[in-house]
């Protein structure tokens, strides 16, 4: 009796998990499959499920388009804004956690909640006046507005969880503020730091709006380049999907490398699309 019921429960549970995986993964699998199809096959209706895969779409991306240059753009912006975000937010998180003051964190939360369009319009006018539109530095600066709040909010609970007595004894031993941060605090929160850096990189890599408005012809990110594909009504679905796969690669690789470690950082209140 009991075993039968347990077995039924186990089977339904397996079915549920399979269904969830199917719903999540089938669209992604469809995208990958389309990227491997010949341009004739990809728009065939009804769609073909069995086909001989080809890498033509990918090689076309890199030979017919300066796709690699835009990949480098995206990389420069994402790495730059992650580094700047860490540089600004980590010491600040330490100070906020040390002094238990909330208003800077609240202000950062406000930045996180405000719609990006609210900033992008004044930025567009101000940076045009400064002649900075279309440079990498503008994209790094603006993307830091995304990465910094995220890093701050991921780091706060990590700094909070370090016992104060550790810092106090370091201070008594003659440690100064910066030493205290660099030699005592940072080594103790390295796991949090990794998560923060990965999430910051992914959110900067993915970010659409700022690069759309402030990126120049040569400095636009991969994201914006692909958006232009869509806008031009490109019917070459194979190449479109190949571009999508290439753009997805860095975030996906990082998710699977970091695994569940990211979840703690993600759900701790500092989350970005």
């Amino acid at each position: 009796m009991v075993t039968a019921r347990v077995r039924v429960a186990r089977v339904t549970q397996t079915l549920e998990v399979a269904l969830v995986c199917a719903v999540v993964l089938i669209p992604v699998a469809w995208m990958i499959a389309s990227s491997l199809k010949h341009s004739v096959e990809v728009t065939r209706y009804p769609p073909v499920l069995l086909f001989t895969p080809t890498l033509d779409n990918f090689s076309q991306l890199f030979t017919m388009l300066p796709f690699f240059d835009y990949f480098v753009n995206s990389l420069v912006v994402a790495v730059g804004s992650t580094a700047l975000g860490l540089l600004l937010a980590v010491p600040a998180a330490f100070a906020i956690s040390w002094h238990r003051v909330s208003w800077p964190a609240t202000f950062v939360l406000f930045t996180r909640m405000a719609p990006g369009t609210l900033f992008v319009l004044p930025w567009f006018i101000l940076f045009t006046k400064l002649g900075l539109i279309g440079t990498h530095s503008v994209l790094i600066l603006t993307h830091t507005v995304v990465t910094m709040p995220l890093i701050l909010w991921v780091m706060l609970p990590h700094f909070d969880s370090v016992p104060r007595s550790i810092f106090e004894s370091a201070l008594i031993d003659g440690c100064r503020q910066f030493d205290c941060l660099l030699r005592v605090a940072v080594p103790l929160v390295t796991p949090g730091l990794t998560v923060a850096a990965i999430l910051a990189f992914i959110s900067s890599w993915n970010f659409f709006l700022f690069a759309l408005v402030l990126g120049g012809i040569d400095t636009k990110t991969l994201i914006v380049l692909s958006f232009n594909f869509v806008g031009e009504g490109s019917t070459d679905w194979g190449r479109l999907m190949a571009a999508a796969v290439v753009i997805s690669a860095p975030p996906i690789l990082m998710i699977f490398a970091a695994g569940r470690g990211l979840i703690g950082g993600l759900t701790n209140g500092a989350v970005k699309e």
């Binding site: 998990v17 969830v20 995986c21 999540v24 993964l25 669209p27 992604v28 469809w30 995208m31 389309s34 728009t43 209706y45 769609p47 992914i202 890599w205 993915n206 659409f208 994201i223 692909s226 958006f227 594909f229 869509v230 679905w237 479109l240 999907m241 571009a243 999508a244 753009i247 997805s248 975030p251 996906i252 998710i255 699977f256 695994g259 569940r260 990211l262 979840i263 993600l266 699309e273």
Partner: peptide, 29 residues
């Protein structure tokens, strides 16, 4: 494993999500 899989939809770039669904939801093909 499931937790890791579940992270992918919301950590993929919105542009990718958009392109993917445009192709899947195309009215004719």
């Amino acid at each position: 494993f499931l937790q890791t899989v579940l992270m992918s939809p919301f950590l993929l770039p919105p542009v990718v999500i958009g392109m993917m669904w445009l192709v899947i939801l195309d009215p004719s093909l």
